[in-house]
């Protein structure tokens, strides 16, 4: 198959791959989809973050659930496949407030904005290279990454499908 492995990255999931793969983060609302790529090692990783920070008084049931545990865990998984964090480029999408109608909608504690903020802060702390970001607003996003082309696309119910970025520096033609 030209598209390689199909990886569905559900809530709190971390998926990594070396070689051809298609990653899909379905229906990101307040959640964040973060993809990282080391071109030299040809290793990809994606995490579907639900919440900004692990609860201090509770055990972490799934590391991928929180930004502060999920990002390091994804990078560690990628390193096992030979990736080097200093070479990684990243892109993120999500962090919306999908409940846009209703008097209470704007005053609610906005998990989406907090997720985006926490993710960016962690990435900045690591001096990660962020190629593109599509966060905030009120539309849910489905994020699709095709490893062969390096193209990251974002699909919304209201706005259709758009290309967010290409994480391969040398954009190469799709191998048949």
């Amino acid at each position: 198959m030209s598209t390689g492995t199909q990886l569905l990255v559900g809530m709190a999931d971390i998926k990594v791959a070396k070689g051809p793969a298609t990653f899909t983060c379905l229906g990101l609302g307040s959640c964040i989809g973060l993809v990282a790529f080391d071109e030299q090692a040809d290793v990809w990783g994606m995490v579907h973050i639900m919440l900004p920070e692990a609860f201090k008084d509770k055990p972490v049931d799934k590391v991928g659930k929180f930004a502060n545990t999920g990002i390091p865990a994804m990078i560690a998984e990628m390193e096992k496949l030979g990736a080097n964090p200093s070479r990684m480029v990243m892109a993120l999408a999500g962090g919306a407030q999908v409940f846009k109608f209703g008097s209470a909608a704007s005053s609610r504690l906005d998990v989406g904005a907090r997720n985006a903020e926490a993710t960016l802060e962690i990435l900045r702390g690591m001096r990660a290279k962020i190629s593109a970001q599509d966060t905030g607003g009120s539309s849910g996003r489905t994020m699709i990454v095709k490893s062969d082309t390096g193209v990251v696309t974002v699909r919304t119910v209201h706005g259709g499908e758009t290309e967010l970025c290409c994480l391969r520096r040398g954009r190469r033609s799709v191998a048949a």
């Binding site: 379905l26 609302g29 959640c31 639900m50 209470a104 609610r108 504690l109 998990v111």
Partner: peptide
Amino acid sequence: PPMVSVDLVYTIAASIVAEAEM
């Protein structure tokens, strides 16, 4: 007061769940 969203089932449910878990 209720809030309304129009989106994918997954998106809506995931956003509720994230807030609940928070």
